[in-house]
Design a protein around this nucleic acid. Structure first.
Length: 219
DNA sequence: ACATTAAAAAGCA
DNA sequence: TGCTTTTTAATGT
């Protein structure tokens, strides 16, 4: 669907630059559209920065046991893989398209040249990375919350906040959301039912509506 | 309170 | 239709 646009304009990391520069940089980017379920990042691929232009990516690690741990969902404007461009080896990081997703790639050499000729980008990068690190910390303490319904409630509140609506669609499969919340699909299913019974939310398959936001916050 | 196991039900290509 | 995901139920830690 998206075709005739500049990748740059969709990406907060780069779209603050003057138009002329954006045009130049856009030539360094490689667009690629991925179908749902396709792998965008895996440890075997050569290092490159992946910027989500449209759609969303599931970012996860694979444990030696083969268990996947979901780290985050990268939405349009988010990027992944910047540390590989600074020499950090990718051992276990995977990225998979959750829907039809358009990604802009930047090779390591081009990326480093870019940072040298546009110092503003370096500053932006530091800012965004600081936010990213901070939200990863939040996720870590988030998993320390005792009860699953507590985690589920805050997850739903966050999602409602970022989507700016009381009604929204879950981006993940229940199975995936379960691992993200540090539980099992079975328990997750029961917690959803519990929240519905207490009239805190309503749900039609993957569409959730928050009915009592205050009630959810009290958990 | 939650996991595990098993099995039924629902969803999807 | 045949496979995958989600739900339900019974039992274990």
């Amino acid at each position: 669907m998206p075709h005739d646009h500049l990748c740059i304009t969709l990406v907060p990391l780069l779209n603050h630059l003057p138009h002329e520069d954006q045009l130049k940089i856009n030539q360094l980017l490689h667009h690629q559209v991925f179908a749902k379920g396709e792998h965008v990042i895996n440890p075997l691929l050569d290092p490159r920065l992946a910027i989500v232009a449209h759609g969303s990516l599931k970012i996860y690690q694979l444990s030696p046991a083969g268990q996947e741990q979901l780290l985050r969902v990268a939405e349009a404007g988010d990027y992944e893989g910047e540390n590989f461009l600074f020499g950090v080896e990718n051992e276990t990081l995977y990225g998979e398209a959750l829907e039809e997703t358009e990604v802009c790639f930047l090779k390591r050499d081009d990326f480093q040249k870019l940072l040298l000729s546009y110092p503003e980008i370096s500053l932006k990068l530091l800012t965004f990375n600081a936010e990213k690190a901070s939200s990863t910390e939040k996720q870590a303490s988030f998993l320390l919350m005792e009860r699953v319904e507590e985690r589920l409630a805050t997850y739903l509140l966050n999602l409602s906040k970022t989507k700016d609506s009381a009604t929204f669609t879950l981006p993940l499969k229940m199975k995936e959301l379960a691992t993200f919340l540090g539980t099992t699909p079975e328990t997750l299913s029961r917690k959803f039912k519990l929240l519905e019974k207490e009239k805190l939310i309503s749900r039609d398959k993957k569409t959730v509506t928050l009915l009592d936001q205050d009630g959810l916050e009290d958990m």
